[in-house]
Simulated scan of single mutants.
Amino acid sequence: MLILEEMQSRGHESLSLLNHAPSGLRAALAVHSTVLGPAIAGVRLREQDEQLAVRGALALSESLTLKTALAGLNYGGGACVLLMPEAGVDDPHAREALFRALGRQLRPLASRVVLTEDIGVTPADIAFVAQETPATLGMNTDTSAVTGYGVYRGMKAAARFALGSESLRGVRVAILGVGAVGRTLAQYLHREGAKLTVADARLEKAEALAGELDGTRAVGCDALLDVPCDIVSPCAYGHSIHSVDVPRLQCRLIAGGEHHPLTRRGEAAVKEAGIVYMPDFAINAAGLIAAATGADMNHAAERVYQIVTRITQVAEQYDKAPHLVARRMAERRIDLIGGLGRV
């Protein structure tokens, strides 16, 4: 009942639980909105329990709705979170079976749901899905690399608003999570001359990246929240910054590639603390734009730069928090286009 109440409060259309014992498929598929078009569902694969998978799918799908709307795409938002099979997916045949089972189960929903890669999933995995359903995106796009570059470009636009300049040379950036997106972001920031501190749930990953990028410091995830910096960039799995930890932050801007790094309570807390928050659905859209439109990395990242610039201009004009402006912009497009009615 609590799940149904959460769906109703967020406006979700549906939640499905998928199961296929032979392949080990266990997944939660959430569709938040199909008002603008079929829901793009990012597919995630990671070790987690069922409750986290369901709640993660609900949160991610809402974020995708806002992201596609803000980016001007004719898609809605969805999410498909896969639980790691007990036998794992190291066997290439087992991995193929898992993703083909997913595609086969979602074939009847091809008019409502389009699958694309997210954390733990590769373009090759989506190619397996595509053998069973035509409703896929991203097989020919390195979405993580494009997303990371887009976050970098969006961060520069946000920094002009929050720090007074879009130059990141000498700016202190603390990156939480150095997977594919966080690593790409760190490389671009290092190239520009930013002063980096990095952290990851697997400390050895952060230490390895710090060894590659001269002058970069690696710390634990919890310690990162206390690091004096100009920008905190969450690039992990979600809800990395808890509302109770906001008073620890010593930054002026939060801008990263992670989906929903803050809860609504956390957003209110950072606003109260005077910290600018550029929301995930505004700044991490480049990979999705590239997958959905065929745009190259530069064009997709430039679109993110323009979106963030527009948000900050409106925020400055009306003296509103950028994350509230971004949400209202997305919701307004959904309302206006949705008001046209279905064909």
Rank of each mutant, 00 (worst) to 15 (best):
E6K: 14
S9N: 11
S9L: 12
H12E: 09
L18G: 03
N19F: 09
H20S: 00
A27D: 08
A30I: 10
V31P: 00
V31Y: 08
H32F: 07
A39C: 03
A41N: 03
G42E: 05
Q48R: 12
D49Y: 04
R55N: 15
A57E: 05
A59P: 02
S63G: 14
T65H: 01
L66V: 02
K67E: 00
T68S: 09
L73C: 02
L83K: 01
P85W: 00
E86Q: 10
V89K: 06
D90K: 14
A94S: 13
R95S: 11
E96K: 09
A97C: 05
F99P: 02
L109S: 03
S111K: 15
V113R: 01
D118W: 03
D118I: 02
T122H: 07
A124K: 13
A124D: 14
P134K: 02
M139K: 11
M139I: 14
N140Y: 00
A145R: 07
A145E: 14
T147S: 07
G148L: 11
R153S: 09
E166F: 12
A174W: 04
L176V: 10
G179Y: 00
L185A: 05
A194D: 10
A194K: 05
A199I: 09
R202A: 12
E204P: 05
E207V: 15
A208I: 06
L209K: 08
G215D: 02
G220Q: 06
C221H: 12
P234K: 11
P234E: 01
Y237N: 10
Y237I: 15
H242F: 11
S243Y: 09
D245L: 13
P247W: 06
Q250H: 07
G256F: 08
H259C: 15
P261Q: 05
L262F: 08
L262K: 10
L262M: 13
T263M: 08
G266E: 04
A268Q: 13
V270S: 11
G274N: 09
V276S: 04
L288Q: 05
I289S: 08
A290C: 06
M297W: 00
H299E: 15
E302K: 12
I307R: 04
I307T: 09
I311H: 07
I311T: 13
V314D: 04
D319P: 00
K320T: 15
A321N: 08
P322M: 00
H323E: 14
D335F: 14
